[in-house]
Design a protein around this nucleic acid. Structure first.
Length: 463
RNA sequence: GUGGUUGUAGCUCAGUUGGUUAGAGCAUCAGAUUGUGAUUCUGAGGGUCGUGGGUUCGAGCCCCAUCAUCCACCCCA
């Protein structure tokens, strides 16, 4: 058979992997700086844990796992019967009862619900693991991709919302990616739905609004008409989505539209709170990256307060991060009163952005430091002994396995980006010396073999 | 789920209105080169042209199907 990969999945070779790890390490170190603890959950969850949490579209994109043992002849009749339900678009636990995780937030909520008694509240966890979605792949979209989440559960304090915004700024500053961190509050969107009398179909409203920068105001209005909104309400919505100015100007202007409703008032207060903290602590530069955007909606229907979305500047790419506050996440699992707020980094898209903008540091592909050349049986034995001495002292090195022509060994070294070559031939064996060659400069010197370690220790001080 | 793009050597791609034995560059291997490389020169290997059907005297090229790919929409990281 011809080997191939499932659609939307990838192998990662050394170069790619080192770069991915660089991003992950950066994110991880910032998470830990803010006091988050690591968590990992299984790749698969019970299907019923996931179903209904991501909306109708989301449910369709969950990868389901076929039950084992369906070929058992005793169960044949039953399996055939139950399969009818699958064909009708319904889930059936006799056919499939497990699924690959779709995101990290719901597994986290499940974990919280199962362990709420044992955990120190507020509980701050981070989780960096792959997730799977049965989407059609395209630019910046994969079927298996890595999410890096940080959530704070068990507090209504908006300081936690502020911290998460800071984490976004902090991480992307370290990665040298220029970004736009968009903020909004679901309560303001609820208020708009209330004021315009579209409470029953808040989803249609937010979806239409969310498309503004993509399809333009005219098309958005057309969509609103088709949803059945009146002329008056549409012009109100138009006023809403065209609000501009600085962040504080935007908050003033929104007051006139939704300020009279309870929900609107609360949403504005919350955003004001966050801005006051952020304006107090952020540098002038960083303040520019925070942008209130009332058209930001976000699809996941469990968000209730703050919502975040991060987009990279100077590059065509979907959002590279998103999140929000959910005031009742574990309620679905029988544990009430557990508020939380979380963010997610999309590693794969961050990688694509950095690749496109050439933002990876040069020295990221560090590898073996020394290659010991193989010049024969006796010589390689001596080289091997010296090499082990280097390895005991944490110097990364390799011995070329075959006694091949020197140019082949040199080529191997340059391909692997190895900094130094150590050459021990019959002459050196006799003299108890070795030749150390700086492969980048092409310069070499002969030193006594018992001083080799000292030589490299001295060199490593330069790095 | 809907629409489109592309599929030829390990990689990047040429291939004329359908016509002899399907090409190039890079990479690989061997030699010139004996213990000092990334230059040069010479040579070699490597392809059922994504797969399966069809039209034709004849198909890499035309038709149908299918798979894969990338992109857009939907939705999303």
């Amino acid at each position: 058979m011809k080997p191939s990969l499932p659609q939307g999945t990838r192998d990662f070779a050394a170069d790619t992997l080192r770069r991915r790890r660089y991003i992950i390490e950066t994110i991880k170190s910032v998470f830990e700086l803010y006091g988050f603890e690591p968590l990992e959950t299984p790749s698969m969850e019970n299907l019923e844990t996931l179903m209904g949490k991501y909306g109708d579209e989301g449910d369709k994109l969950i990868f389901k796992i076929l039950n084992n043992g369906l070929d058992n002849p005793v169960k044949r009749e039953n399996a055939l019967l139950n399969f009818e339900q699958i064909l009708a678009g319904k889930n059936n636990k006799y056919i499939t009862e497990r699924a690959l995780r779709y995101d990290l937030t719901i597994p986290f909520a499940r974990y919280m619900a199962m362990n709420s008694g044992k955990l120190t509240i507020p509980f701050k966890r981070y989780q960096i693991q792959p997730v799977w979605r049965a989407d059609r792949p395209q630019k910046g979209r994969y079927r298996e991709f890595m999410q890096c989440d940080a959530d704070i559960a068990g507090t209504y304090s908006l300081i936690s919302d502020v911290e998460l915004a800071e984490i976004y700024i902090d991480v992307f500053k370290r990665l040298k990616i220029e970004v736009d961190v968009k903020l909004n509050n679901r309560k303001i969107l609820f208020a708009l739905a209330e004021v315009t009398g579209s409470v029953t179909d808040i989803n249609a409203l937010t979806i239409a609004i969310d498309k503004l920068d993509k399809i333009g105001i005219k098309k958005v209005k057309e969509e609103l008409v088709s949803v059945g909104l009146s002329e008056n309400n549409i012009s109100l919505i138009e006023k809403y989505i065209t609000i501009d100015g600085t962040n504080s100007e935007k908050l003033e202007k929104i007051e006139a539209i939704v300020g009279k409703t309870e929900s609107g008032k609360k949403g504005i207060e919350e955003l004001q709170f966050m801005l006051s903290y952020l304006n107090n602590s952020l540098s002038e530069d960083s303040k520019q990256t925070i942008n209130i955007d009332f058209t930001l909606a976000r699809g996941l229907n469990y968000y209730t307060g703050t919502i975040y979305e991060v987009k990279a500047k100077n590059v065509e790419m979907g959002s590279i991060g998103g999140g929000g506050r959910y005031d009742d996440l574990t309620g679905l699992f029988g544990v009430p009163d557990m508020p939380g707020v979380g963010i997610s980094f999309g590693l794969d898209r961050i990688y694509d952005v950095m690749e496109e903008l050439n933002l990876f540091p040069e020295n990221i592909n560090q590898t073996t430091e020394i290659l010991f050349f193989n010049l024969g049986e006796k010589e390689s034995k001596q080289a091997y002994k010296l090499m082990q001495e280097m390895r005991l002292n944490n110097i990364s090195c390799e011995l070329f396995y075959e006694n091949s022509k020197l140019d082949k060994q040199f080529k191997y070294a340059s391909k692997k980006n190895i900094a130094y070559g150590v050459i021990i031939g019959s002459k050196e064996m006799e003299e108890k010396t070795c030749v150390v060659k700086d492969l980048a400069k092409g310069e070499q010197e002969t030193i006594p073999e018992n001083e080799l370690l000292k030589y490299f220790n001295k060199l490593s001080l330069r790095f």
